[in-house]
Write a protein that binds this DNA or RNA. Structure first.
Lengths: 188, 188
DNA sequence: TTGACAACTTACTAACCAGTAAGTAAAATA
DNA sequence: TATTTTACTTACTGGTTAGTAAGTTGTCAA
């Protein structure tokens, strides 16, 4: 039986990562919030590196589960895109969180190598799903854009990532304006 | 006579900010790199908060100087946009740096209030210049996009910010692909 | 009932952090 | 020349960091 504590640590670490970044939270933060001692965190995750990797790995697994879920697979391209946008909108709504990719890429030069690897894999997976969804929509005649779907996907993903961050300084409206503009660009 | 040291501190702090983030560098890093002692940094910038603000303030002043410079003012909208894109391309070329706005927004919840204020002002200034340049280009018939220029500006700025970060995980090609896609979207 | 193991706590360490108080040497000023 | 000011250094503090070693308690299997 896996403990509740291990999952609670992962949940809180993920939340703290999206809130303050990898260098912005400590084992003490997690411990005090959970009402346990520092060493309890080290029992489940010997190093901060392993904790960070476990958070990203779990996020990646969750994304793949969603993507391969019939409820998502059977959506139309527009609905798939809306579902994807809503993931980011929910992060914004949840205390102004930003996406894991953006946090870890911003701190890329001061995080462990294994966590950099996880970040690269996560970004590639998001990008690849988005590119094939865009291609699918263009083939179906519902999306319109020039050039390769992978380039347009990189544009959209980078913008969502940046817009979540920007919304911290300028407010939620900025984020929603960016999303609306993407739809306008794509559907015209 | 302002010392070389003060400027060297600002230069290095700006570079470290773009490299490792506000929580990712210390007075000791700056001191050892410059061959002075910790206290020398505190002499010029009593607190890290003041140092951070001075870096962003100098960056804002520099941007306003560029923007109000006749050499930039007299450019065509396309040239202005290319010039703006090249600022970001140069950051990417310079050891994979990311933009100040992106770093500080990502760390927004763990930086001092005065630095948050500087971040907001910087982002507003970049956004406002970009929006009026887009408007100017659309009026001149060289740019094409739907909706408000301020929304398209937020889309482009957020994307440049995100693409610099993303390029750390995926490489420089990703950044250039995003810029090329923006041009394609705008010029069609 | 005993032994093993899981899930912790207690108590600690060495490194690093921003920040400070007091001293110093050289240059500018009067 | 005397005094002040600038630009530091030396030496330190209290707080925080990830990480560790050794001990404790409750559960479960043999």
């Amino acid at each position: 039986m896996t403990t509740n504590t291990k999952r609670a640590i992962l949940d809180l670490a993920e939340s703290l990562l999206q809130d303050k970044g990898f260098n912005g939270f400590s084992y003490a933060h997690i411990a005090s919030e959970l009402g346990v001692k520092n060493a309890a965190i080290h029992y489940h995750f010997p190093s901060k590196e392993e904790l960070g990797c476990a958070v990203v790995q779990r996020y990646r697994d969750r994304f793949q589960l969603w993507v391969n879920n019939a409820r998502v697979k059977d959506l139309s391209p527009q609905e798939k895109l809306d579902w994807f946008f809503s993931i980011y909108a929910n992060m914004r709504a949840d205390q102004g969180k930003v996406c894991l990719g953006g946090v870890l890429e911003t701190e890329f030069n001061s995080i462990p190598a294994s966590l950099r690897q996880q970040t690269e894999s996560l970004t590639n997976e998001l990008l690849s799903w988005l590119a094939s969804t865009l291609d699918e929509g263009r083939d179906a005649g519902v999306f319109q854009f020039n050039g390769q779907a992978s380039d347009k996907a990189a544009l959209i993903l980078s913008s969502l990532q940046g817009a979540l961050q920007m919304a911290r300084a300028l407010g939620t409206d900025t984020f929603h304006a960016v999303v609306a503009q993407h739809k306008q660009d794509l559907f015209v």
